[in-house]
């Protein structure tokens, strides 16, 4: 088996970013997880935080304890232990979604761009199961992949100032649920009534990295019954 390849790039005054092959792939995701463990052990107290994503790891260090030279050398040293392995998957989580033009203002745009019906957009979004590749951007924001190639949409040229909590969205071949109202540049296709981040609950999130997520369409009445809110979701 070949040695995993990576590239180290400068990110900021106290940050380096480790890039693997830039694709959405469970095997790459497994390498990211491995790298995080190795880096935490190697840098120990010099580390401020490690931020994993699909195919990258952002490493932030304390610049009053160490520097780029030393950190780069340590990273190369510990990453020599990376090995290709089978990825393990976590639990299966079903999440309800109210898909409609009322709750998903970009559904019509996607249908029009791809020359398919709105119903087909909804069908295709539900047809596959997704892996949780990363959590970030906002608390509880889980990046899920991969979306049917036909539904692939670029991010909006100018992000919306306000996306409602629960918004189900697509960007490129990624899909996600906005856990709280925030600005955002993804295409909105529906609303999910499940709270994706709740500090008062244990666990704080219904999903973790490595889990499998399936979306299940629900109607408006069911959405409201499950505690979904349409008010504030107006765009």
């Amino acid at each position: 088996m070949s040695k995993p390849q990576y590239q180290l790039t400068l990110a900021g005054e106290n940050a380096l970013i480790l890039y693997f092959d830039q694709r959405i792939d469970p095997a790459i995701s497994a390498l990211v997880q491995q790298a995080c463990v190795l880096i935490r052990a190697e840098l120990a107290e010099d580390l401020i935080d490690v931020l994993p994503s699909y195919a990258s790891v952002l490493v932030m260090f304390n610049p009053l304890r160490t520097d780029h030279f030393r950190v780069q050398a340590q990273l190369k040293h510990c990453l020599a232990n990376l090995h290709n392995s089978d990825s393990q998957s976590g639990k299966v989580v079903e999440l309800p979604v109210y898909y409609s033009e009322e709750s998903g203002p970009d559904l019509a745009l996607i249908a029009q761009t791809k020359n398919i019906s709105i119903d087909e957009v909804i069908q295709r979004h539900q047809a596959v199961s997704y892996r949780v590749y990363a959590i970030g951007f906002a608390p509880g924001f889980a990046y899920l992949g991969e979306v049917d190639p036909l539904l692939q949409m670029p991010r909006l040229a100018t992000p919306r100032a306000k996306v409602p909590r629960g918004a189900v969205a697509i960007a490129d071949r990624q899909t996600a649920i906005y856990p709280a109202q925030s600005p955002g540049g993804w295409n909105l296709i529906g609303l999910c009534p499940t709270r994706m981040f709740n500090p008062e609950q244990t666990p704080v999130m219904p999903v973790s990295v490595g889990d499998e997520v399936r979306f299940v369409a629900i109607d408006k009445a069911e959405f409201l019954r499950l505690g979904g809110e349409l008010q504030g979701a107006k765009l």
Binding site: E13, I17, Q22, S53, Y54, L58, Y143, A157, T158
Partner: peptide, 19 residues
Amino acid sequence: QSQLLSEGICYGAVQIPPD
């Protein structure tokens, strides 16, 4: 480069959206 996989953002990062 227009398409990018989401990745970690450090303090002070200067992001350039398509505009």
